[in-house]
């Protein structure tokens, strides 16, 4: 028995905490994305790896630079910049010049996060904001889908990857339309199995639906993910596009095609669920998800672009404060 009192702390209760922390939640998302990322690298080769690395480097360096500037300390430890860079990279076409990918990372963190006040204060998903910027600024390289690696060596790097900054990229790659483009402009349906396993054209992360779903299940098991958001998005897409298919099966894609094509799974599981930019309230998340699902189908079917996930999520991000305001739960006993 010690006679002297230990120097007792006076921390407030509760002294117990559940185990998860914000950085660990971010890291879990990184782990969940690993299989799909590896698959993308396998299908597209070394060039894809470089694109991802450039996006991540842009994001992380920007985060680090502003943290230094604002003397905010080690914000890199929360892994959110790496995640933003990776998510951005997964939305890029594999043949993208590396400097563009890097610039995307810089914009994603700089305009997507830092100017809002850092983690937790941004209105829009940073990765998608970065992509929107790139799509507006570099429309041609951003919609040029290189073909799959095929028989080429893994280490083959497409010439377009190495284009110098601000030089006209020679579009000499063998390019073709993505499944959604084929569907939209030529009414040609890509087989579902190809979509599920990932050997189709598209951005890096668009390709392997099954692996993305697997990662989503991992996140759900780890309770890192608000399951309502992906479920409501997918349900809305299935129901809405199902109705359209009943009207005209040739012009409109089937629900299954809608789900496994384009960036829908990537967006629904990993981007729309970004806690910062999705509603706080449980009811709000349903509205948010359904809104995204409906917008995706609308943009895909009626808009001028084959792909609408990015704009759908960004639009609903903007609606989030409003949704939160009108979906506050009823207080107990009131």
């Amino acid at each position: 028995m010690k006679q002297k009192d230990p120097d007792l702390l006076l921390l407030h209760a509760p002294l117990l905490r559940q185990g998860m922390t914000t950085p660990s939640a971010m890291r879990d998302v990184l782990y969940a994305l690993t299989p799909a990322t590896l698959a993308a690298l396998w299908f597209f080769g070394l060039g894809a790896l470089l694109v991802l690395a450039a996006g991540i480097a842009g994001a992380v360096l920007t985060e680090w630079f502003f943290a230094r500037l604002q003397k905010r300390g080690e914000t890199l430890l929360d892994a959110s910049a790496i995640l933003t860079g990776l998510l951005l990279g997964l939305t890029l076409p594999p043949g993208l010049p590396l400097w563009i990918a890097f610039l995307g990372g810089v914009v994603a963190i700089g305009l997507g996060k830092v100017i809002w006040g850092g983690l937790g204060h941004n209105l829009f998903n940073p990765a998608l904001l970065g992509r929107a910027f790139l799509l507006a600024t570099f429309p041609i390289p951003m919609t040029t889908w290189t073909s799959l690696r095929g028989d080429e060596s893994f280490f083959h790097i497409s010439a377009s990857n190495l284009a110098l900054p601000f030089m006209q990229t020679k579009v000499d790659v063998v390019s073709s339309a993505s499944p959604l483009g084929l569907m939209k402009f030529e009414q040609e349906v890509t087989p579902l199995t190809n979509l599920m396993f990932g050997n189709t054209l598209g951005s890096l992360g668009e390709t392997s639906g099954l692996l993305l779903l697997l990662g989503g299940i991992y996140l759900w098991v780890r309770r890192d993910l608000d399951w309502r958001i992906p479920v409501s998005i997918l349900l809305a897409v299935v129901v809405f596009s199902g109705c359209l298919t009943l009207v005209d099966a040739v012009r409109f894609p089937t629900p299954w095609f809608s789900i496994f094509s384009g960036g829908l799974l990537l967006g629904a599981i990993y981007m729309a669920t970004d806690p910062v930019t999705s509603p706080l309230t449980p009811r709000g998340t349903w509205i948010f998800g359904i809104g995204i699902g409906v917008l995706v189908v609308l943009i895909r079917v009626y808009g001028g672009l084959p792909e609408g996930v990015m704009y759908a999520i960004l639009l609903m991000n903007a609606a989030t404060p409003l949704i939160d305001r009108y979906t506050q739960p009823r207080i107990f006993g009131r």
């Binding site: 914000t22 430890l77 937790g120």
Partner: peptide
Amino acid sequence: AETARPQEYPCIRCGRCLEACPYFLN
């Protein structure tokens, strides 16, 4: 083990506190 306080991070608006509050507060 119980009194070590991990570094505080900004609120990431995850909604876990809302889903924990038995009085349905925010």
